[in-house]
């Protein structure tokens, strides 16, 4: 286990834990004020490939089977899905979809699911696990992103200066925690003691996906919530 991961789990679980890390995949259990929890996720920025996705899905299924209702703490530090020809040949997207479905099963079976981002949180690494949680929290070092602005400028052929200028006000372009907080996807960074923050998060009821509403309240996504509500018809259909 790296010193950074050791420090994080030490701060999250001062009452004791049995968390292991191998090849960037985190698995284990820990004591919290809210009781025994399962711990799983990614560390060291690992890119999630087919083996990792399958192993994580297996841990979720095992938790559902052996420890009904036990809360799941998801640790997030991943630079995204592993990009290789072999992973694509084997159908990595299918493994990631399966992982997401397993997390959804755990939620429906009453497992509270809380994610804690401590490093990178990127694309195919965070979608099927961290972003499937009931709530996504962040600690020092959290750095969610999709693409750096220079890379974005290259791919989209838009001027870098314009992207940088727009990023002063718009949260949708540049990397960074504050921007994902404004979008409603992640909660503001925890201040220590992390163990108390975690206990409070675990005691909050799961509820439905409110990220679009939070994005509206925080001024980061002004249209998503209203568009989804209008299409869903949950407020009654328009004439």
């Amino acid at each position: 286990m790296t010193p950074a991961l050791g420090a994080l789990v030490g701060a999250l679980f001062p009452a004791g834990h049995a968390v292991r890390e191998e090849g960037g995949i985190v698995v284990g259990a820990a004591h919290t004020a809210a009781g025994e929890v399962a711990v799983l996720g990614t560390a060291g920025g690992v890119e999630v490939g087919v083996e990792a996705a399958l192993a994580l899905a297996g841990e979720v299924l095992r938790t559902v089977r052996e420890h009904p209702g036990r809360p799941i703490v998801v640790l997030v530090d991943t630079r995204g899905q592993r990009m290789s020809r072999r992973d694509e040949v084997l159908g990595l997207n299918g493994y990631l979809g399966h992982l997401a479905a397993c997390v959804e099963l755990a939620r429906r079976r009453g497992h509270p699911i809380v994610a804690v981002v401590s490093g990178d949180a990127v694309s195919g690494g965070v979608l099927p696990l961290g972003f499937m949680a009931d709530a996504v929290h962040a600690v020092e070092g959290a750095h969610p992103w999709v693409m750096s602005l220079p890379a974005m400028a290259r791919v989209t052929k838009l001027p870098l200066e314009r992207l940088e200028e727009l990023s002063q006000s718009s949260p949708v372009l540049a990397p960074g925690l504050d921007r994902f907080v404004r979008l409603g996807a992640i909660e503001p960074r925890w201040e220590p003691p992390l163990s108390e923050q975690l206990a409070a998060a675990l005691s909050r009821p799961a509820g439905r996906d409110r990220r679009a509403e939070l994005g509206l309240e925080r001024g980061g996504r002004l249209l998503a919530a209203a568009v989804a509500r209008r299409v869903s018809g949950e407020d009654g259909d328009e004439p």
Partner: peptide
């Protein structure tokens, strides 16, 4: 995939699609 010109919002939207899709299936 994610629309790079609104990258962060696109990523979050994809995550919301996944949850809503699995919700419909459930």
């Amino acid at each position: 995939g994610v629309r790079l010109q609104e990258a962060n919002a696109g990523l979050v939207a994809v995550s919301e699609i996944m949850r809503a899709l699995l919700g419909a299936r459930a």
